[in-house]
């Protein structure tokens, strides 16, 4: 019964769709025009939608931030720092890092009405993986996080308003490949505080840096320190006197894989140069191992060598024997 109805619906939709192809397609929006146009069907409404959508773009991003159980304190602090930087995020309880965590997380995101998710997964108490996912059906990325410095470190002396919208800077090598472009878009959507968010403050006093170096994404956060008297314009030469003070946190993301769905789905990208930290450790260990075996081998080799070339008989051996 259900099937039948579906068939008829699609057939009905197919007819107006042909007409639709003739006028210009509406620009894509965040929520996806595909579903809307299919549901609504006729042209006039599509046009209305277009008129409404294109000038008034509302960013309604909400980010769920959680971590796995047994995360260590340093990584937990990193997560808390990220939470303090993103006023549009919701922090949730720790999630058990199991095989089925993807499903759990998807459910959680659904429950919290979020549109993306940052999941800090700590393995073995020392390796931190960061999952970045666009939630209902967006892609998801798994990163290995390294070079972590939290905001608590006293070397990072800057400070800025909590919830002020950051200026994002990307290095241009984000444009050089498809997966970098996708990552850039995800970073932009997740890390940019929506305009007029109720927790956001209306001033801009810090700047994020996303830079690709050595195929890793490096993150920095600087406070902007500029002398000024007015709120809407800089004094003359103010830009020259500007200086930046690092606030933190610092981390470095190494993309491992990009999946088609959120927390799962087909693999769209796998980093060809990636070596897991487990392998690194195994290599180190293996290098240290086999000490005894080596010793034995050296001994036998020496023996063989001695056997194969024996010493010549000493001609002076019995000079003092008389």
């Amino acid at each position: 019964m259900g099937k039948k109805r579906k068939h008829s619906e699609t057939a009905a939709v197919a007819v107006p769709k042909k007409d639709e192809a003739a006028p210009e397609r509406p620009a894509r929006t965040l929520l996806g025009w595909k579903d809307k146009s299919e549901v609504n069907g006729d042209d006039s409404q599509v046009k209305d939608v277009e008129l409404d959508d294109s000038p008034i773009f509302r960013n309604k991003e909400k980010v769920l931030v959680t971590c796995s159980r047994r995360i260590n304190f340093r990584y937990r602090h990193l997560m808390l720092n990220v939470v303090s930087l993103l006023p549009h995020c919701k922090k949730d309880n720790k999630v058990e890092s199991m095989e089925s965590k993807g499903a759990t997380l998807n459910e959680l995101v659904e429950l919290k009405n979020c549109s993306s998710c940052l999941f800090f997964e700590c393995r073995k108490g020392k390796d931190l993986y960061l999952w970045m996912a666009k939630c209902p059906n967006g892609p998801s990325v798994k990163f290995l996080v390294s070079a972590v410095h939290t905001m608590e470190e006293l070397k990072l002396t800057g400070n800025h308003l909590k919830g002020s919208r950051p200026i994002l800077t990307f290095s241009t090598n984000f444009e050089k490949d498809a997966h970098w472009r996708l990552l850039k878009e995800m970073l932009l959507q997740i890390f940019e505080t929506p305009k007029d968010h109720r927790k956001a403050k209306p001033f801009h006093d810090h700047v994020f840096v996303f830079s690709i170096a050595d195929d890793h994404i490096w993150f920095r956060n600087y406070q902007i320190d500029v002398p000024h008297n007015e709120t809407d314009k800089l004094p003359r030469g103010g830009l020259e006197q500007m200086n930046l003070v690092e606030v933190g946190p610092r981390f470095c993301l190494n993309p491992i894989k990009i999946f088609g769905g959120s927390f799962g789905g087909p693999t769209l990208y796998a980093n060809p140069l990636y070596v897991s930290p487990n392998q690194v450790r195994a290599l180190e260990k293996r290098k240290k191992s086999g000490k005894y075996a080596k010793k034995i081998k050296a001994k036998t080799r020496r023996k063989m060598h001695e056997m194969s070339n024996p010493l010549e008989p000493d001609e002076f051996a019995d000079t003092w024997k008389e």
Binding site: R28, F57, N137, G138, L168, A178, Q189, E192
Partner: peptide, 22 residues
């Protein structure tokens, strides 16, 4: 996927606040 998730082309800059630096 990029096409699916990306914001419309004509988003005002004030929404993104993003700058590309060479």
């Amino acid at each position: 996927k990029l096409g699916d998730i990306s914001w419309p082309e004509n988003v005002v800059w004030i929404h993104t606040l993003s700058i590309d630096i060479d």
